[in-house]
Simulated assay, not measured.
Amino acid sequence: MLRYAMKRFVLAIAVAFTVSIGAFLALHLATDPARAIAGEDAEAQVVQQIRVEYGLDRPLPAQYGEWLTDLAQGDFGDSYYWHQSVAHLIIEAAPTTLRLAGFALLITILVSIPLGALAAINANTWIDRAALSVAVSAQAIPSFWLGLVMIVVFAVELHWFPVSGGGSWAHFVLPAFVLGMRSVPAVMRLTRAGLIEVYESDYIRTARAKGFRGRKLLTGQALRNALLPVVSVLAVQLGHKLGGSIIIESVFSMRGLGRLALDSILGGDIPTVQMLVFLFALTFVFLTFLSDLINAWIDPRLRLR
C-alpha cells in the first residue's frame, strides 16, 4: 500500500507543478496585468511605469520563478483590486465555500446512492424509470433557476430559511441542496450501473445460494465493489463544488471563494484569480489522489498496478 501511495503522490506532485505553469501562463498571456492595474483608459506611459514597478517587464520564466518561490514560502502576493494580501482574502472566504461544498456533497450522497441502489434492485421496472426520471430532471434544471425558486418558496413565502448570507447552518440548507442536486444524476446512474453489473457476477450468485438476500446482500456483498468508481466520481464532484460554486454563491449572496473569483475576474485582479485557479486545480489533484488511496484500500488488487 505504501509503494502504491508513493507512486500516486509523485504523479500528483508532477500534475500540480504542470498546473502551476498553466495557471501562470494562461492569465499572463490572456491579458496584460499592467493594463489591468492601470485601467483601460490609462496612458501608455502610466502602464509602462506600472509594468516596471511591479516587475512585469521581465521575461515570463523569471516572473514564474519568483511567483513559485513566493508560493513555496506561503506568500500568495497582493491583490490589485482590494489592496490586501491574497492569502487573507482566501482565508476569509474559504470557510463559507468549504461548508457549502461539504453540505452539498452530503446531500449528493444521501440522495444519489440510495436512489441508484433502489433503481438497480428494481431494474427495468416503473421504480427504475421513476428514479431515472428524477435524475434527468435534476440535470436538466438550471442551478440559478432552481435557486431562485427555492428562495421564493422556502425563504420568502414559508419563511423556513434565510434568503441570503452564511451566518448559520440554516443559511446553507437551500444553496447546499441546489448545489448537491447537480451531482445526483451522475452518481446515481453510476451506482445503478455498478450494482447491476455486480449483481450479475458469479460471487453474487454464490452469495444468493448461501442465503444472502435483500439488504444483507446489498450492503454486505454488492455495494462495496459497486462503489469503486463512485468514490472517484464523488472526489471529482467535490472539486466541482469547491471551484464551481460561483453561480450558487451569487444567487444566495454568499461571500465564498466562488464569489471572490467572480469579483476578481470583473476587477481584473490577476494575482487573486491566478491563485484561485491554482488552488482549485490543486484541489482536484489532491482529491483524485485521495480517491485513488480509498479505492486501493477497498480493492487490494489496485495496489498491484
Rank of each mutant, 00 (worst) to 15 (best):
K241C: 14
I204V: 15
F144M: 04
P229Q: 05
F172T: 06
E197N: 11
T219I: 13
P175M: 07
E197C: 05
L179F: 10
L218S: 07
S245R: 00
A170G: 07
S201C: 12
F177K: 09
R182G: 15
R189H: 03
V231K: 01
A207H: 13
S164A: 12
V178Y: 11
L217Y: 01
L238S: 04
F144W: 03
T191N: 02
L146M: 00
K216E: 15
V233R: 01
S164D: 14
T191M: 06
Q237Y: 03
I151T: 06
V163W: 00
G243V: 05
I127M: 09
A130Y: 12
G244F: 07
M188V: 03
R213I: 11
L257P: 10
L174T: 06
L234I: 01
L260I: 12
H171G: 06
V231Y: 06
S168L: 08
G239W: 13
A186N: 07
V134Q: 01
G258F: 01
I204G: 14
R192M: 07
V231M: 00
Q221D: 14
R129Y: 10
F177L: 13
D263V: 05
V163D: 09
I247H: 09
S143P: 05
S201Y: 14
T219G: 09
I246M: 14
F177N: 04
S253C: 08
Q139M: 14
S168A: 13
V156R: 04
W169H: 10
I127F: 08
A176E: 00
V149R: 01
V152R: 11
G211A: 03
W160V: 09
F172V: 00
I141D: 01
V134D: 04
F252P: 04
R205C: 01
L242D: 13
V173W: 09
Y199R: 08
T219H: 14
A261V: 11
M181E: 04
S232N: 06
I204P: 12
G194W: 00
F144H: 02
A235V: 01
A138E: 03
G147K: 10
G180Y: 05
A226Y: 00
R189G: 04
A226D: 02
E197Q: 11
V233E: 05
W145D: 03
E197F: 04
L257K: 07
R255G: 13
V149G: 01
G239V: 04
A135D: 03
W145C: 08
W126A: 13
R215V: 15
A235N: 01
G214L: 12
K216F: 14
V134I: 15
V251N: 09
